[in-house]
Simulated assay, not measured.
Amino acid sequence: MKKRKQWILLFCIALTVCLASGAMLYVRQKNNNKKWSLIYIPKTEDGTNDFWTSLISGTRMAAQECGASLTILAPEREQDVERQNEFLAEAIEENPDAILFSPSSFDASDELLQEAKEKGIKITFIDSYTESNIQDMTVATDNLEAGKLLGEYARTLLNENSRIAIVSHVKGVSTAVEREQGFREGLGDYNKNVVEVVYCNSLFDKASQLTEALIEKYPDLEMVAGMNEYSAVGAARAVQKCGKEGGIQVVGVDSSQEAVQLMEKGVFKGIVVQKAFKMGYLGVMETVRMLKGKPYDENVNSGCQLVTPENMYSSEIEKLIFPFNVLGAD
């Protein structure tokens, strides 16, 4: 009788293990086969900005490859925080599996993001982040690294008396803060030569106007550094318009076809290029990996590369500055 009870007990344990294993396998297979619903809210979907065009293309390719449903909701202007939050509220109502978000403000979206979190929606930040540590994952360029790389290169073009101006994009946003900090670190003791920092609110024309004003205000200005595509290209346009290509050197972050052309003409001396397509691609792929319950990295650095007139025609660099045919260099 006692032996019979032992056999029954062993059978029950074995049955329980089999049922648990079967349930786990079922859940795993279900997760692998599920069509995950994703909503991505970038800062803008601006056809004149190669960075966002490339990044969004990367998200779409990844979604197609992994069979996820991806909806893009984007303001027309990068600094339109109010419209971005309207899209975020709309996305929360849709209740997707995950919201991928590129915050235009350091703190204006935190309340809505908390609401999404409480509903069980996973949050992935792409490109930038907010003040509160609310995200499940961040996929971005190391902006301190990008700024420092630019600053170290800029220093080689200057002397201890050179005067430098910074044209940044949106005051207080994480990318602007970190790139400026890194740029100053890269300049080293030349940091004391930064005469002024201005913000163009990610508008090409405003960046040009601000740069023209800086050129007039500081006749001995030797360098302008732009912290994103809008500010860098806008600054380069102004330097070219004023006929100062020989006297004022322009460096910046982000590439575009216009930036490449301006480098060929000698206006840009150096550009730190983000791997935008790769950033968008990894943003989606790693989010789906997270949703499937697989191991994932909470902070993914998508990388960056310094492009100069000396290396711009190498095959590796061409993959970055003409990003629409390839995923991007590793």
Rank of each mutant, 00 (worst) to 15 (best):
E286M: 04
I39A: 03
Y199H: 10
D330F: 06
R184Q: 10
M137I: 01
N32D: 14
P309C: 03
E93H: 06
Y153T: 00
I13N: 12
D127G: 09
L306I: 03
Q181R: 14
M285Y: 07
G186T: 06
K244H: 06
P96D: 10
L144N: 13
K206H: 01
V260F: 04
S202W: 01
L73M: 15
F11W: 12
C242F: 01
E180P: 08
M223Y: 12
N301A: 01
L112S: 12
F106E: 14
T44C: 11
M312N: 06
G22I: 06
T211Q: 07
P309M: 02
V173E: 14
K30N: 12
E245N: 12
I8S: 13
Q114P: 00
N161R: 12
S231V: 06
K2E: 13
G120D: 14
I248E: 11
Y230W: 02
L210Q: 14
D220R: 07
S256M: 01
S104H: 02
L112H: 07
I121L: 08
V195W: 15
D205M: 09
L9E: 15
V260N: 05
N133P: 00
K278N: 03
V170M: 13
L320W: 03
A68I: 10
N311K: 01
P96G: 06
Q274V: 02
G151R: 02
T175N: 14
A98M: 09
E258N: 05
T211M: 07
V253F: 10
V250S: 08
E65M: 13
E316V: 09
T59M: 04
P295Q: 08
G293D: 09
D107T: 11
V284T: 02
F125G: 10
T138Q: 12
P309V: 02
V251K: 04
N228Q: 12
E286F: 05
D220I: 03
Y230P: 05
L282S: 01
M1N: 04
I215P: 04
F324A: 04
T141S: 07
Q79H: 07
F204N: 08
F125V: 06
L73Y: 13
Q249E: 10
G47K: 10
L291T: 00
D50V: 05
F322T: 13
F125C: 15
G120E: 14
W7R: 10
L112M: 11
M263F: 07
A74G: 10
A329K: 07
T175G: 15
